[in-house]
Nucleic acid binder design. Structure first.
Lengths: 218, 218
DNA sequence: CGTCGTTTCGTACATTGTACGATACGCTAC
DNA sequence: GTAGCGTATCGTACAATGTACGAAACGACG
């Protein structure tokens, strides 16, 4: 598992293969682990060989961000907006939970790929077709995406690498607050976060429903 | 302006001075520009000298994140919750707009500083004192922070370096969609984003009001 | 003046992205 | 075959980064 690759006749290199390997590597080792050299190793190749398919590492980042967007449910323009927005939101959260490194990159890429553009277009179209005014669409989109991205950001920050409950992580931290310095944090930690069965991911649904209920076509 | 520093008797180095210089440097050159070497230059010192006050660069990041949190309005436990949450949200957004590099780091630091802890504690306390149940507090907090962070994330991604209107940036991008590939994006761009006077930052207020209206102590 | 704790720094190394140019490969034209 | 050429691969090298290690400079007190 630790070593790199077996032998076997190397499949021909491809821009697509490079990007998919980069995606897998980022998932496994994080963004910092995504290195031209290790990526080349993973592909049973050499660093400079990748540059035949990709001009710069930034293009690799652009590429894997678009791959991530491609995984998100594409809303169907014409379908009931509430159902589609719910589906899209859940899907996006799941995808971003799968690719924890992606949240910080999603919106920061200057060169959005086709899947990214398709996604935005379909989402906007769904709202418009459902009767949302132009401004209402802009408001709804900003609100929804802010919530989704922000939630994913917090979720990605949780240090939950193969941990059963949040309590395992929170407990040692909370011990340092045993003096009464941060009473409210302790209260919430003990009363909610560290309760058996608590799952931060479920918070997502609560907020999503609240937001969707508050949104109207105007 | 391009050169580094004038002469003058160098002020004594301090952990605090190092952190403040790091903060300023990150604001000026971005996270990537925050380098031990340039930071040392900025302080009229040498790279390895900084390591007397700071064990690792990660500690610098921890430090400036806490400085950022210190800039955010600290809610007053006991005050009306809605007013305090509004104030905190606006303040946080402004701070994160000032320090665009910070959004991705805020929640990802494993070692939260005192200002960070105080901030979370005061926010939770304000909700609790206003009658929010434990679970309602957790829900409200997750919802609000998700929205704020997500909004800041999108805002930070906007390539608005000294640009008057979003239109200046959006126009050239939209031209590439002149074919009918992404009709809904074009529609929104032309009908909203590129309208004179449009300011994405104002979207923040809309969403914030919606969310605060939807929140209840339960 | 000597001694010792505090503070500063010079040198060096491993790791990163990638520029540049050489090589290897697979085909077509003679 | 073999000469040539476009496609694909790679070896070497360089600049920039964080920081380990140990030496030096400094300052106060005996």
């Amino acid at each position: 598992m630790g070593t790199t690759n077996d032998d076997g006749p190397r499949t021909a290199l491809t821009r697509d293969r490079v990007l998919r390997a980069a995606l897998a590597l980022a998932d496994r080792d994080g963004l910092a682990g995504l290195t031209i050299r290790t990526l080349a190793q993973e592909l049973d190749s050499k660093p400079m060989s990748l540059y035949y398919y990709v001009a710069t590492k930034d293009q690799i980042l652009d590429g894997i961000v678009d791959l991530v967007f491609a995984e998100v449910h594409l809303p169907v323009v014409g379908n009931p907006w509430r159902q589609e927005m719910e589906h899209r939101a859940r899907s996006m959260r799941a995808v971003l939970a799968r690719h924890r490194w992606a949240v910080g990159l999603l919106e920061s890429r200057a060169a959005p790929g086709p899947a990214t553009l398709r996604h935005h277009d379909a989402t906007l179209g769904t709202l418009r077709r459902a009767g949302f005014s132009l401004r209402a669409t802009a408001h709804a989109y900003a609100l929804l995406d802010s919530y989704i991205y922000g939630f994913a950001l917090q979720e990605a920050a949780l240090p939950l690498a193969g941990v059963d409950s949040v309590a395992e992580v929170a407990a040692p931290i909370m011990e340092r607050f045993a003096d009464g310095q941060y009473p409210w944090m302790v209260e919430i930690a003990e009363g909610v976060v560290m309760q058996p069965g608590y799952d931060f991911a479920e918070e997502f649904e609560h907020g999503l429903e609240l937001i969707l209920d508050a949104i109207t076509p105007h």
